[in-house]
Amino acid sequence: MIGLISVAAAALALSAPQDAPPQTTLPDVVVEGRNLEELVRGFVEEVGAPVGDYGPARWDRSVCIGVVNLRRELAQQMIDRMSAVALEVGLEPGQPGCRPNVLVIAAADGGEMARALVEARPGLFLTHVSGANQSRSELADFQATDRPVRWWHISLPVDSDTGQAAVRMPGYGPAATGNTFASRLRTGIQSDLQRVFIIVDFNRAGGANLIQISDYVAMVALAQIDPDAQTAGYDTVLNLFGSPETLPRITDWDLSYLRALYSAELDQARANAQSNEVARGMARDQRRDGDE
């Protein structure tokens, strides 16, 4: 991962971020007219972006966050805020000096930065390992989009007991085949996140401040979020850049989704069964919050 940081640092001379403007707070978004189960299932289906026929991926126990191309104090604020979200969903943030597997890069031109990174190390983005990354066309979108924040996840199907790769990897031995309790319904294999690149284009961030951006980035760092998800009907930080004044930080709805993702058993044989497990957990979490 040190090499990964070096690649990013080499491209950072292309841009310099702007400071984020102050925060404005307005009332929360209220969603009405749909029952909880329908809302939850719709959200999980809308935002999820697993690789191919594999189910949703997540980090295994811990995550190390690095932020580059921001002033030290601003980078630390972002790391601290993202780490707080990671703790909230049951992950252990890395200690100072850890090797980042979440790399957040601030840029004045996100497209130029993305193209420079992909050109410098294309193998970090297209791994040629089954279940590891999205397609070439989606990588092209990662480079060409004008979204304020863009991201690229790398995941790996692993044995849920040992963490060993469950797909063939160049230069490694045979793939793990899942634990001995696997069945037609459960495979003993789940997808773990391995690294994620996130580029924040501060010239396109509008009125969003650093806390809001940090929460948005935490959401897309901890889960495979579809960049084209239509989320206007939900109370989520993913609506940030449509109306930054209404969303001061990550919402209870977002945290319910992440908690469900990180508490679900994700070794079902079918990807949609895994998504259904997340939806059920999210609905339970929302009901529990409503009773408190």
Rank of each mutant, 00 (worst) to 15 (best):
V149E: 01
H153R: 04
A84H: 08
E88M: 07
I105G: 00
G90L: 04
H153S: 12
G94C: 03
A116E: 02
W152L: 01
T145G: 09
I105Y: 00
A86S: 14
G123T: 12
N101E: 09
A107K: 03
D146E: 13
V89E: 00
V85T: 14
M113L: 15
L91I: 07
L74W: 08
D109P: 03
H153I: 11
P100Q: 11
G131N: 11
D109V: 06
L117E: 02
S135R: 09
G97A: 02
L139S: 05
G90M: 03
E88F: 01
V102I: 15
L126M: 13
E73S: 14
A120T: 13
V129E: 10
E138W: 12
V129D: 02
D109T: 05
R136M: 14
E92C: 05
G90D: 00
A140V: 14
R71A: 13
W152C: 04
D109Y: 10
D80G: 05
A144P: 04
Q134D: 15
A107F: 02
P96H: 08
L70D: 07
C98E: 11
G111I: 00
L126N: 07
G90N: 05
L126K: 15
E73H: 11
E73V: 11
S155V: 10
M113A: 13
W152R: 09
M82T: 04
G94W: 01
N69V: 06
H128W: 08
R71V: 06
A86D: 05
V85R: 11
A107S: 15
L117T: 07
Q76N: 10
R99A: 11
S83T: 01
L139F: 05
Q76S: 09
D80M: 03
A114S: 11
E138N: 12
G131L: 04
H153M: 10
A84Q: 15
F125E: 07
G111T: 00
G111F: 01
I79R: 13
G131F: 03
A106K: 00
S155R: 06
G97D: 03
A106Q: 01
R71F: 02
M82I: 15
A107L: 08
C98H: 04
R115M: 10
A144K: 12
R136W: 15
M78K: 06
D80F: 04
V149C: 01
V118M: 07
E73F: 14
G123R: 12
L117Y: 04
G111Y: 03
G111L: 01
Q77N: 08
D109R: 10
L74P: 00
